[in-house]
Write a protein that binds this DNA or RNA. Structure first.
Lengths: 323, 323
DNA sequence: TTGAAAGCGGTACCAT
DNA sequence: ATGGTACCGCTTTCAA
């Protein structure tokens, strides 16, 4: 009842055949007597036999599983990407093991180490430098999402928000705004998004302020409060992502700013809930389904031994209620 | 360069030792010369050796991985549960393979079949009857979430919203409402939540209407429109979950109802985004982190061969803006 | 300290 | 149609 694994040989004995015959019955091989097959199958069922996935995978080397590394499952953007990646992976018959690094750098390395020996490829949002990642993962194929340079032997999906952010800034400026701030992420290096923002401002002869914020609604709330404190006449705001933007809008309104009249806000990502808040969030939208699908495709390329093309996915400005 | 798997024997040859010695070096065994060990490790690195997880798992039978079956990763409630379960599982050193059944019954069975041979236990939201599940999964431990009866040999986390829903109805009635409807899920059998709703109404001498709705914002929109069409004087609404409620609130307002003045709405789940929409959603909140943690705990119990206790998690009424 | 041999639980290719 | 045997890649006795 408890413990002891039932093997193919136990079944064989119970059915009175050799264990090879059991294998045949289990795998629907043609060369087996129907009666025998049934008897074997019955015995297997009765004993509660379950083939070992390891033994099976060991001999026919065709089970691929990919690790999906996500900074935060509670951020809907990552969830949308994960959902798309999951679907794309299943179509190929791959298994997807999901890891949530909680946005923590150390966690990330720990995760990579574990994962490295458990999956055939990794795709996800990684912060660590390429060489560090390579070391920790033992050199299996890795596909970065949302990183600028990947280096050789890595796949990568670039998220190109340059045009979208330029359009966003242009829209704000066209609306007569000229004191436009940005809430960036909190990592050591400023994001590409903040660079695009600064570029865009510059092209309009403006300068702005970038402040790091936690990647959560609360982070956005705190960030916007600080920004408004320093620049009370802020009339426009871009954010690293939608979740931050949602928090920023909330707090800005609490602080007496009308959005968008007093201060317009434009997020980044285009997550679904952005259209549900009040007012609906304007944003630079990324096609998450395509992003997930492309990532899986790159994994396939890498797994096949080919060199990955650099794929880019472009953000587009979506104007709703906050700008 | 391409293809060919590097095995422990390749390393052995390259390092000029027997393959058992390589194994020792790799696993930090004490009985090995330090110099030899280093030489072996160098060789391994140079050849890009990666131990086969299958071979390894096959011999030391200690790798457990659990399958997490979720109807819809885009519904934040499930994501929150998944996030909690992931964290709890990692603490035990388990791997979690996530499957999204897209709320589809057939997908679910297909998924179960695949999954059954790939993981050591399953936890999730399953719709299929217990005996069907048992057949498809080949009898590995299964922990149901949010189901009433589980039957022997299954674990289960009950979601008890009875008190919460009674409180919700009582609150509406106390506010003078008496034409209270409910948007349920769309499955064949009405949900426990709808039964609690009807019970609660009855205890106040009222009767109501239950209508099935798709489990999405859109489903809630369509559902509330139909309900308001049939009962234009509806003054209160409960929903199967928050996502539906959010859609319902939106559409109700579009149809000219003030929420909560004309029609109060109370959701179920207590997802974070409920507090971000306008007006903030009143709801019966479930502690998702606890839910996920408990599910993993039950898996552990089952895996240890013990009989699972029936665990219940209770919903509590949270009043925000919509009621 | 190191090497030889025996499995782990299967699959596949031989013969029979 | 069935059984024998080798082998997948690795860990673990057991000798040497």
């Amino acid at each position: 009842m408890a413990g002891k694994r039932v093997t193919i040989r136990d079944v064989a004995i119970s059915a009175g055949v050799s264990y090879q015959t059991v294998s045949r019955a289990l795998n629907d091989k043609p060369e087996i007597d129907a009666t025998t097959k049934e008897r074997v199958l019955d015995a297997a069922r009765e004993l509660g036999f379950r083939p070992s996935r390891f033994a099976r995978a060991l001999v026919r080397q065709d089970t691929t599983s990919v690790g999906l590394v996500i900074p935060d499952l509670l951020n809907p953007f990552f969830t949308e990407v994960a959902s798309a990646a999951l679907e794309a992976a299943r179509k190929r018959g791959w298994h997807v093991v999901v890891y949530d690094t909680a946005g923590d750098g150390e966690q990330e390395l720990g995760t990579l180490e574990v994962i490295g020996s458990q999956v055939d490829a990794i795709v996800g949002y990684l912060n660590a430098p390429a060489d560090v990642v390579a070391r920790y993962t033992g050199g299996i194929p890795v596909v970065y999402i949302g990183r600028e340079s990947a280096g050789a032997s890595f796949g990568s999906i670039r998220v190109d928000g340059e045009a979208g952010i330029h359009a966003a800034v242009a829209h704000l400026v066209a609306g007569g705004r000229c004191r436009i701030g940005m809430l960036d992420h909190e990592h050591a290096a400023p994001s590409a998004r903040s660079r695009w923002y600064l570029d865009a401002l510059r092209s309009h002869g403006l300068s702005g302020w970038v402040l790091g914020a936690g990647q959560s609604v609360e982070g956005g709330e705190i960030g916007v409060a600080a920004l408004l404190d320093a620049h009370p006449d802020l009339d426009g705001l871009l954010t690293y992502n939608d979740v931050i933007a949602i928090g920023a809008v909330r707090r800005a309104r609490m602080l007496g700013r009308r959005v968008p009249q007093d201060c317009a806000v434009i997020g980044f990502d285009g997550v679904q809930i952005g259209s549900l808040v009040e007012p609906p969030l304007s944003t630079v939208r990324i096609d998450t389904r395509q992003l997930g699908a492309l990532a899986v495709e790159q994994v396939a390329t890498l797994l096949a031994g080919a060199t990955p093309e650099v794929t880019t996915i472009t953000g587009t400005l979506v104007l709703r209620g906050t700008a």
